[in-house]
Design a protein around this nucleic acid. Structure first.
Lengths: 249, 249
DNA sequence: CCGACTTTGTGCATGCGTTCACAAGCGGTA
DNA sequence: TACCGCTTGTGAACGCATGCACAAAGTCGG
């Protein structure tokens, strides 16, 4: 049983030593899944569910139950054998490990179609990620409010990010501008970047970049389409029908 | 050296037996990277580069050169020792393996902020992913052209997807609608789905789903912010300055 | 034609992540 | 209190992906 403590009395919410070591050791893949569990659990809370077993939760999250238990074990042992997990307890522990006890101010750079969508996206503020700054090069956009926030000129990134304590920068610019924008965000002290531009960003070691590349996602799907189509053709040649039934045994 | 053949004489472009086996064996992670290499290489072609070494390409793609060579070896041996790779040859082989020799018609469901952005996104058609159908529940949207394509009512998914030979469905609906939309796409014969809704979709085994979850991405970044902040606090306690310099040796 | 130099392709070791399988632990019941 | 059934937590085995290091294979200059 890890040390318990009151929460929310500090904005920075430092982790206990035991948790600190755990956080260091959590595999990247497990972190991504913890976020998914958290979302599923939040839904459970809304439905009035108070207790859940690893089997139920793993099904809802679309993973193997052993994996789920191992993932949860990375953040501590908060289940009750023979019963399951207390939903609210689990939620609060995952939130703590993911650093969601503190708000993370977000800046969106590039207010095109995607930037608009991101600025208006309701999922962010509701989950502790308020969008507090928008930037674009287009002078005509500067001052125009999008999703309730006026657009700033890209030249002002450094000062605006500093004064609004931006901790996450989202790049939604055209590809050629992405690296320059990234550099500016970094020099403004932003250490976490979510990149939607189809460009490989070069950043210093102390900056974390995650990329969302729609074209790559599509191409991965395309690969699977091709492989499937090809296997089907192959199977047909080998006497197996499209429904998996052997037509020429 | 794998068998060479003319390309483009068939819309379905079946793979040679040797390639077929390779495609089956390519690790998922490598497929994602191949898509990145392809994008970088396309940029090289535009710059007039004809030959590139694994070292140069790996740097541009942000990976280790050994990994790059291994990834390329999955699709065959098309390099020249002592010289490097012919850019155009590499492009055409990656395209073939990823199934990009054929167009993949895309349907976007849910024409909200994100759906608009996706429908207008220029990156898709340019890379062989023409958006050919849009759907929404909102009667007021039906018939309105977005990005040049009129919106259809969601009730017509099955027929429209079938007649336009949609092979990839993109879900950009609110979370509660996602599973129902997914089921409809599947019953319309769509086997590949890109899901932007923060929901775990349940699909049959023969359907491939990839998810893009912005909230999860943010939370992963949040985790890193927290870990970093915590390490910094820890280091400070242990007498190491924020710039990594030991202030209390 | 030969030797030096360059770069690919890959066998092998290492490390990480997933899965299995079961002991440990808890609640309920008599 | 003692037993029984259920579920967690985790050691251990396995499999996949990464990175190293080098032989194989090509180019280029003389």
């Amino acid at each position: 049983m890890a040390s318990q403590r009151g929460e929310g009395e500090l904005t920075t919410t430092p982790l206990e030593p035991a948790d600190r070591e755990r956080a260091r050791a959590i595999p990247e893949a497990a972190v991504a899944r913890l976020a998914v569990y958290l979302r599923v659990l939040s839904g459970m809370v809304d439905q009035g569910v108070t207790t859940i077993s690893s089997e139920e939760l793993s099904q809802a999250a679309g993973v193997n139950s052993a994996k789920l238990r191992k993932d949860l074990s990375y953040i501590g042992s908060y289940g009750t054998r023979g019963v399951g997990y207390d939903v609210e307890v689990l939620v609060s522990h995952i939130e703590r490990i993911l650093g969601l006890t503190r708000k993370h101010s977000v800046a969106v750079v590039g207010i095109g179609n995607l930037g608009h969508a991101l600025a208006n996206y309701g999922g962010f503020p509701g989950r502790g990620f308020p969008v507090t700054a928008l930037f674009d090069v287009d002078e005509d956009l500067v001052g125009v409010p999008v999703g309730g926030i006026p657009v700033n000129h890209i030249e002002d990134i450094t000062t605006v990010c500093a004064e609004r304590e931006v901790s996450i920068g989202v790049i939604a610019t055209p590809p050629p501008a992405a690296q320059a924008v990234c550099d500016r965000l970094v020099s403004a002290g932003v250490q976490c970047i979510l990149n939607f531009a189809p460009v490989v960003l070069q950043v210093p070691d102390n900056v974390e970049v995650r990329k969302v590349d729609l074209a790559v996602e599509m191409q991965i799907l395309s690969f699977h389409v091709a492989r499937r189509a090809d296997e089907a053709a192959n199977d047909l040649v080998n006497g197996i029908g499209v429904d998996g039934m052997v037509i020429r045994p």
